[in-house]
Structures are given as structure tokens and as C-alpha cells.
């Protein structure tokens, strides 16, 4: 145990944590806008998958990761719009509709990729030079973007009239309405923003961390991002730390593989390593949820009084 805690190991762990936290930061920030405006966003998982799939296809076809990334983000905005229409206009149960979007994005990419690549399981491998670049082989350009977005989102949420209105729409939509805020329109914008951000996180997964899209490749990251958001009490700066925490546990789990042995001298089974982030999410939620307070009107459809 002692000989693995070298500076090199710790550095690897740090960079690995940052890399694994990156998609979570994007998704959690997206969820933040939607939930602060009053719309529960279980759809994050599906929006991430949308971004991941679209970016992988577009990057492969166009051989340009930046255009691919933008395509992924645009697709995320589009799917988020559909979700927004269901939950805002038709007042569908937000949790049910959000889950359905995630389910849709398990099936739809498979239908499309089996048509265009004759393979339902994954898209085509993208050559390394067409992936989102890493600096010094360590830090992805997407990680830098994610970290830069934290202060930007903080500024938008707390220092602009738009942010104030979003918060008002989620806390007290009636009062916001009385003050002249168009709550419905704001919620649409907030949900679409969540689609853009979550899809960006997904795009990084397929064209940054990996080099192709595989079915269900987010593996619950959308839900973990939601847990991080709750842990962070729906605030942008704590979101960074919550996501880094989840990224760190995943990094630790990967680095532990083959290093830490069972009492019998065998490797710790891979199944247990894989379980760690999920177990931790449950523990963290149980331990911290009492301390955080959700936006008051979260999950409540808004109907304008005549």
C-alpha cells in the first residue's frame, strides 16, 4: 500500500479525477439551470447520450471535433426542447418524462447507427487526430471549458437579471409572474440550456475520453450529475467540488484495480470496483440531502392565472 502513494501516482489520480469529473460538471451545470427554474431534470442522462451519439457521428463524418461537438450540443438543445414541451406545455410528470427521454436515447442511437454503420452497438472509431485535443497529453480542452464555465454560470445565475429571473421562476413563480417575468418562457430557455450543457458533457465522453459512441455509454453519469447537483445544493461553485469528488472516486476505483488485493491475495473483483461510484452516490445523498434545500417550486408545473 505504502509504495503506491508516490507523487507520480497522486498526479495520475489528480488528472484522472479531472478527466472523469468533466462530463459531470457539464451535466450538473445544465441540471442546475433547469432545476433552479423549477423543472426536475432526470433527462440529463438522455441529453448526455444525445450529445455523445451526435458528436461521434458528426465528428466521424466531418473529421472535425469542433463541428462534431457543436452538432452534439445542437442535438441536445433539440431533444431538450421536446422534453420542455412535454413537461411545460403539457404538464407531463417531470420525472416520468425525463426518464422516458433517457430511455429514448438508449434505443434511438441504436436504430440510427444500425442503419448508417450496420452496427447497433456502436458507431465507427474516430482517428486520434480528429478527437478533442488534450494539452500535454493530460488535460482535455473540454475540461478547461468545463472549469471555465463554473464562474461564468455563477455570474449568470447571481449577477444578471436573467439569473435572478431563473431563480425567481423556481422559488416563487407566482410572484415572479406578478413582477412581469414570463415564467413559461424562462423555463423553456432553462431546460434548453440544460440540454446544451448536458450534451456537451456527453460529447466529451464520445469524442474526448473515448473515440466512438457505444450504446448507453454514459452508464448512469446523468443521474450521478444530478446527485452531485443535490450535494452541491444547486449552487455552481459547490457543483465543481461535488463533481470533482465523484470524479475522484471513479478515478480511485480505476487506479485501485490490480493494486489493492483481497485478503486472499487475489485482485479485487472488477464488479466491486465498478460499484463504488454508485454506492457512494447513495451514501452521499442519504447523508447530505437533509442539509440541502431544493428550489421551492421544483417539479411543480406553472399555469398562468387569468
Amino acid at each position: 500500500m505504502g509504495d503506491i502513494l508516490t507523487p507520480t501516482f497522486l498526479l495520475i489520480l489528480l488528472f484522472s479525477s479531472i478527466r472523469l469529473a468533466t462530463p459531470l460538471i457539464f451535466a450538473a451545470l445544465g441540471g442546475m439551470f433547469s432545476e433552479r427554474a423549477g423543472v426536475i431534470n432526470i433527462a440529463l442522462e438522455g441529453l448526455m447520450l444525445t450529445g455523445a451519439f451526435t458528436a461521434a457521428v458528426a465528428t466521424y463524418e466531418l473529421s472535425n471535433p469542433y463541428i462534431g461537438f457543436l452538432c452534439g450540443v445542437a442535438a441536445g438543445a433539440f431533444v431538450a426542447l421536446i422534453f420542455a414541451i412535454a413537461v411545460i406545455k403539457f404538464e407531463a410528470d417531470q420525472v416520468v418524462a425525463g426518464f422516458a427521454v433517457s430511455l429514448l436515447m438508449l434505443g434511438l442511437p441504436a436504430v440510427i447507427s444500425s442503419r448508417i454503420y450496420d452496427s447497433a452497438g456502436s458507431t465507427q472509431q474516430i482517428a486520434k487526430e480528429f478527437l478533442l485535443p488534450d494539452f500535454y497529453n493530460r488535460i482535455s480542452i473540454a475540461s478547461i471549458l468545463a472549469f471555465a464555465l463554473i464562474p461564468v454560470c455563477w455570474y449568470v445565475l447571481y449577477k444578471t437579471p436573467f439569473g435572478l429571473r431563473i431563480r425567481a421562476a423556481g422559488e416563487n413563480p407566482e410572484a415572479a409572474d406578478a413582477a412581469g417575468v414570463n415564467v413559461i418562457k424562462l423555463r423553456y430557455v432553462a431546460v434548453i440550456m440544460s440540454g446544451v450543457l448536458a450534451a456537451a458533457g456527453g460529447a466529451y465522453l464520445s469524442i474526448g475520453q473515448s473515440s466512438l459512441f457505444t450504446r448507453g455509454m454514459t452508464a448512469g453519469r446523468g443521474y450521478i450529475a444530478l446527485a452531485a447537483l443535490i450535494l452541491a445544493k444547486w449552487k455552481p461553485i459547490p457543483v465543481l467540488f461535488a463533481c470533482l469528488f465523484f470524479g475522484f472516486t471513479e478515478a480511485l476505483a480505476i487506479q485501485m484495480q490490480g493494486v489493492i488485493k483481497m485478503p486472499s491475495g487475489e485482485d479485487v473483483p472488477v464488479q466491486f470496483i465498478q460499484m463504488i461510484p454508485y454506492v457512494l452516490t447513495i451514501i452521499v445523498l442519504a447523508g447530505f440531502i437533509g442539509l440541502s434545500r431544493a428550489p421551492k417550486a421544483l417539479g411543480v408545473p406553472y399555469r398562468k392565472e387569468n
Binding site: 421536446i82 412535454a86 407531463a92 427521454v101 429514448l104 434505443g107 441504436a110 436504430v111
Partner: peptide, 22 residues
């Protein structure tokens, strides 16, 4: 068309049922 179409239909049905519940 691949068999995943059923998963897509299933998701769309959920969205429509939830939206029409109103």
C-alpha cells in the same frame, strides 16, 4: 430497421401518455 425500434416506441409511448395525462 433494427429491433431497437421497440425501445424507441416504448419511450415515445411513455412521453405521450405522460403528456396526455393532463
Amino acid at each position: 430497421v433494427s429491433k431497437d425500434l421497440v425501445e424507441v416506441l416504448q419511450a415515445i409511448i411513455i412521453i405521450f401518455v405522460a403528456s396526455l395525462q393532463k
